[in-house]
């Protein structure tokens, strides 16, 4: 019973959805304020999801039906699983079988199914989106792995998230060290690209290829994608906070407020990057990740080995 409560309500599905929805709203609100607009009300992201479940689902003729329907569902379930693993670790101090490499795998699944779903829809624009997403994956997943390597070196080869958290509590957070800062920068760009936020939204470019990978999805199926993205809005920043910015605080109330402050700061950083950049072309994105962030990551690894 308790486990079910943990999985479904706190700190599982409902809790993640609420915080993620607020996070997404916050990001939209920041953007609106940057442009001197008012911005949407706080419940907007939830209403958008609810509305999608009231609409009709259309399956395009000639699409591969099974893949088309399964992709959003599997995306959603992979993201949910990742969320549960992370929140159990972070909020309930439970450690379980599964390390950050498992989490990395779980994070790759959504992107894969977005690509598969888009390719199964038989829409040329969706195919363009899918091919862009593939190239994007080559860049951001790669950078994130380097960022994880830095973490693993710093925690002396420990792969368990609980150990990484404890290590930071005992020795101060990784963000304070030079290599930790570099890893954090890499992870920040990873979040930006994973969530498909400007400047890395080439795969879902609304004006250019009409929402790209999501173009043929409507109604509840699109709703599942939205839920998955909302959950990621919560769990990706949380993952980065857990990996780089864990603070040693015993009082649970202070622990939660520290989390909220760090979360909002990360969202603010994301929306600043979003609002001062135009959308990059896929070539520029690859160049940025491979020829700028990759050498930076190598530098980070060297620093981490030196113990800095």
């Amino acid at each position: 019973m308790k486990a079910l409560f943990n999985y479904l309500i706190f700190p599982g599905f409902i809790f993640s959805l609420v915080i993620g929805g607020m996070g997404w709203w916050l990001e939209r609100k920041f953007t609106a304020r940057f442009q001197y607009r008012v911005g949407p009300p706080w419940y907007q992201t939830f209403l958008d999801i609810l509305k999608l479940f009231l609409k009709e689902t259309i399956i395009p003729g000639g699409a591969s039906k099974i893949l088309f329907i399964l992709s959003p569902l599997l995306t959603f379930s992979a993201v949910l699983m990742f969320n549960l693993m992370l929140t159990e670790n972070y909020f309930l101090d439970k450690s379980f079988v599964g390390d950050i490499l498992v989490m990395l795998y779980l994070l790759i699944i959504p992107s894969l199914f977005i690509i598969l779903g888009a390719s199964s829809s038989r829409n040329p624009l969706a195919l363009v989106g899918a091919s862009r997403e593939t190239k994007l994956m080559l860049s951001y997943e790669f950078i994130f792995i380097i960022s994880l390597v830095i973490i693993i070196i710093k925690s002396n080869g420990n792969l368990m998230l609980a150990d990484i958290l404890n290590n930071q509590i005992n020795r101060g957070m990784y963000l304070k060290s030079a290599s930790g800062t570099i890893g954090f920068i890499l992870a920040l760009f990873y979040i930006q690209a994973k969530l498909g936020i400007v400047p890395f939204d080439a795969a879902e470019a609304e004006q250019e290829i009409m929402s790209g990978t999501a173009i043929e999805y409507s109604g509840p199926l699109l709703g599942f994608y939205r839920i998955a993205k909302t959950l990621l809005y919560f769990s990706l920043p949380l993952f980065v906070i857990a990996l780089f910015g864990q603070i040693a605080i015993n009082n649970p109330l202070h622990k939660y407020s520290a989390f909220v402050i760090e979360y909002v700061l990360i969202l603010l950083l994301i929306s600043v990057i979003k609002n001062i950049n135009p959308r990059l072309r896929i070539k520029e994105i690859l160049g940025f990740f491979w020829f700028f962030l990759f050498p930076l990551g190598i530098l980070g690894i060297i620093l981490a080995i030196k113990g800095l």
Partner: peptide
């Protein structure tokens, strides 16, 4: 956008 209105790119949305 403060009224929840958004311009979307795809007719399916």
């Amino acid at each position: 956008e403060r009224l929840g209105i958004q311009l979307v790119g795809s007719i399916r949305h």
